[in-house]
């Protein structure tokens, strides 16, 4: 019988692919995503983590460790500003898992939880950047030009990825 590849391997490889896709999508579609004055930022890395929190076994996958590791690499490679996403990623995963467990497990609650997760993620990222003077945009500008478009983009991405990823975890649960 063919040996099954453990889900943890899929999880880690998918994690890094999602991480690099974030940058590549931002680069190749920058004309659409960062069209003035709006900014839509893809967060596939977080999407992958949160979906793992929804369907997978967080303990077996070492979910929080991986969230911190990928957050650290994100800080180091993409922004060059350490200590931001290394804490935000695990926090968002924790919050999402907490809320999702108290809701009926279906697409609508996933959608809702992810909506909240991205809001927390982007808002905390904004606060960190304001703190160090990386941005001077006001809260109103942030809400309209960054948070709203980013939410829209990421919810569309969630809708596309949700069912295939659920199927992947379901086949590995048996």
């Amino acid at each position: 019988m063919k040996r099954k590849i453990p889900i943890a391997v899929y999880f880690v490889i998918g994690q890094f692919i999602a991480f690099f896709f974030d940058g590549s999508i931002s680069q190749t579609m920058s004309g659409i995503l960062f069209k003035y004055p709006n900014a839509m930022v893809p967060y596939l890395t977080v999407l992958w983590l949160i979906l793992a929190a929804f369907f997978g076994n967080g303990k077996k996958l070492h979910l929080y460790t991986w969230a911190a590791v990928i957050g650290f690499i994100f800080d180091m490679y993409y922004t060059g500003l350490l200590g931001v996403y290394v804490f935000i990623f695990p926090l968002v995963v924790y919050l999402c898992q907490l809320v999702y467990q108290s809701l009926p497990p279906n697409f609508m609650s996933g959608f809702l939880v992810y909506f909240l997760g991205i809001t927390v993620l982007v808002s905390l990222g904004y606060m960190a950047n304001v703190f160090i003077g990386e941005t001077d945009s006001s809260v109103a500008q942030f809400l309209v030009n960054t948070l709203a478009p980013t939410l829209a983009l990421n919810l569309v991405l969630l809708t596309i990825v949700y069912f295939p990823v659920e199927a992947l975890y379901r086949t590995h649960r048996q």
């Binding site: 690099f20 974030d22 940058g23 590549s24 999508i25 931002s26 680069q27 920058s30 960062f34 900014a39 930022v41 893809p42 967060y43 490679y77 993409y78 922004t79 060059g80 500003l81 990222g125 904004y126 950047n129 990386e134 941005t135 030009n145 960054t146 980013t150």
Partner: peptide, 12 residues
């Protein structure tokens, strides 16, 4: 690649 962030307009 480009930094996926709306604050840091950075490319690598």
């Amino acid at each position: 690649t480009r930094t996926p962030s709306s604050w840091a307009s950075q490319v690598i």
